[in-house]
Amino acid sequence: MHEPFVPHSRRLWLYAFAALVLVFLVAPVFIVIPMSFSGAQFLTFPPESFSLRWYRNYLESPEWLAATWISLKAAVLTTLVATPLGIAAAYGLNASRTRLATMAQVALVTPLLIPVIILGVGVFYLYVQIGLVNTLLGLVLAHSILAIPFVMVTVTAGLRQFDLNQERVARSLGATRLRAFMTVTLPQLRNSIVAGGLFAFITSLDEVVIALFISSGPQSTLTRRMFSGLRDQVDPTIAAVSSLLIVLSVALLGTAQLLQRRR
């Protein structure tokens, strides 16, 4: 590969532009986190005094903790549902080149392409009819639809680097197809799978639009409660919860990235 040489001085505008984009992307984080340590009654920036009162408020509020518990349960269960299905989809689609497989692949990725609010409306009308509104099961299923493509994409990337001849050899050496998959393929996809699972977990944990439609009252998720809190009373507790979510997400995403790079 021959790359034409462009001196750094003539690329300065590019660096500046990239820096601007990064600032724009990260700025909210640098506003929310200081706000969460504010001592004031309302969301203010920059904060005039500092305290941990909103964190205390969060930890002492039964509603916030109940919502947190719902969100964590939904996220864990979504991970448990979406990860095996995503692995199976990635494996099957990797092995097959038929037109049906291509269509299945498109269908599985569709939830990433259509606006979530459309999904939310659709899921809501469906759930009303089958009685899944405001249930944990309903939430987990809806979140799994969003999470499966993430698992599928990371596992597919892992499979690309995997030599399927290994599985063939294992089968010729006396392993059934399932056993060959479990003993040879799966262990080598481990990092991709953990990364995909973490993505699934975060997808569920951060999701708000579908939750707005199908989880309310005592079944509210954390994000849903934050959303309504923001609308009704502008409670700085939201900033504290956001900061905690940001830290958790960054930690999980960082882990996922590290695992993907290690393969």
Binding site: R168, V169, R171, S172, L173, G174, A175, T176
Partner: peptide, 8 residues
Amino acid sequence: PHRRDFGV
């Protein structure tokens, strides 16, 4: 394949 007893 796993029942054929062939080395590959």
